[in-house]
Amino acid sequence: MDALKSAGRALIRSPSLAKQSWGGGGRHRKLPENWTDTRETLLEGMLFSLKYLGMTLVEQPKGEELSAAAIKRIVATAKASGKKLQKVTLKVSPRGIILTDNLTNQLIENVSIYRISYCTADKMHDKVFAYIAQSQHNQSLECHAFLCTKRKMAQAVTLTVAQAFKVAFEFWQVSKEEKEKRDKASQEGGDVLGARQDCTPPLKSLVATGNLLDLEETAKAPLSTVSANTTNMDEVPRPQALSGSSVVWELDDGLDEAFSRLAQSRTNPQVLDTGLTAQDMHYAQCLSPVDWDKPDSSGTEQDDLFSF
């Protein structure tokens, strides 16, 4: 819950932080000083300027060897085509990944977070970031790969997607708890209302004896509580940590079903599988986004697919 609360507080303090972009060759504004600060901008989305290598189908939802083989196929196909790589912007948030063309600003792909089953910074092609997700059109699994400016960037994108998945799962947990509370309150309110109706004398007997209905007592009954809980029953509950912020979080049926399955089948359902080692994760978390744009010590960066 700490990640969720800190993310909400950060967004309320400075929503404009989320509009910064990394990996864009110096076009961005001043960047936060450390990885923790940038992680807090996830709610509205972190932007990464990358190059799209392509996509291939895979048979399993996750796995280092599986993704490595898929990336190898994608890279080989991209090299064989001889075409310049498409420059894209990857927007990562707890909602998922939005992929747009840098030149036309046209939407290429919009992947809900619950469809993503794996992401990684490839070991062999260490400047490549990739994720595996279920197609929104059918049940097939797709591996999408992107060329980053350097290994640090690939690791940073991988960690960002993993963190977005974690925050999304926490949102789901909060929403589920809130819905259970509202359902319980609604049920209790309905029981109270039913009890009051059972003990209320029939209207005919009131008229016969000349008694008047006590409207004041009726007004004191917990009807307002019942209506408050039943009027918006169809509205999706939102985490309290975000009250007053500009973010509107809505959970669709697909996300609810997917996270429910994860909660039942996995020990740590909030953790998205990645190909990063503990050492890689520690190294990337210690980086400032400013470091992502620094040239690798191995030599001059080449803006070309064939540089790796």
Rank of each mutant, 00 (worst) to 15 (best):
Y118R: 12
I71F: 14
L90G: 15
V248Y: 01
V247Y: 10
A195Y: 05
L193W: 03
L159S: 10
G63I: 08
L85R: 11
L31H: 04
F165Q: 01
E65A: 13
S224P: 05
F129P: 13
H144G: 13
M55P: 06
V207R: 10
W292D: 03
G45K: 00
Q106E: 08
T274F: 01
M153W: 01
G190Q: 06
Y131Q: 06
S81D: 08
A18P: 06
N102F: 12
M233W: 03
L287P: 00
D273W: 11
L262G: 02
Q187E: 06
A18T: 04
V167L: 09
T149W: 00
A69K: 08
G25F: 05
C143A: 09
S265P: 01
S227R: 13
V271S: 10
N268D: 11
A80D: 08
Q187K: 07
L305E: 09
G96A: 04
E216H: 01
A3N: 11
E180W: 12
P94R: 09
E188I: 08
K91L: 11
Q86E: 09
L53C: 07
K152E: 13
A185Y: 08
A133H: 13
K19P: 12
T89P: 10
V111E: 10
S175F: 00
Q155R: 15
R115L: 04
K181T: 03
L31Q: 09
D183F: 09
L215W: 14
G190L: 13
W249P: 12
Q240W: 00
R196M: 10
K184C: 04
K72Q: 10
I132M: 14
Q136H: 07
D291G: 01
S112L: 01
D2I: 06
S265W: 06
C119R: 09
F169H: 01
S21M: 02
E301V: 05
V174S: 02
L66T: 02
K5F: 05
R39K: 04
A121V: 10
N229E: 03
Y52P: 05
R182C: 10
T277I: 09
G24Q: 04
N102P: 12
L276C: 07
R9T: 15
L31G: 12
K179I: 10
S67V: 11
A80C: 11
F146W: 08
T200R: 07
E178I: 00
Q155S: 14
L147E: 01
M153H: 07
N34P: 03
H137M: 12
E217G: 03
K72G: 06
G23I: 05
G24H: 06
A221T: 00
C119Q: 12
S14A: 03
I97G: 10
L147V: 08
V92N: 12
H282R: 14
L103G: 14
L213E: 00
V290I: 15
K5Q: 10
T274S: 05
L193H: 03
T36E: 10
N110P: 04
E40Q: 12
S265N: 00
L17W: 04
E178D: 00
E235R: 15
A154T: 01
P15L: 00
Q173E: 02
N232F: 12
S67F: 08
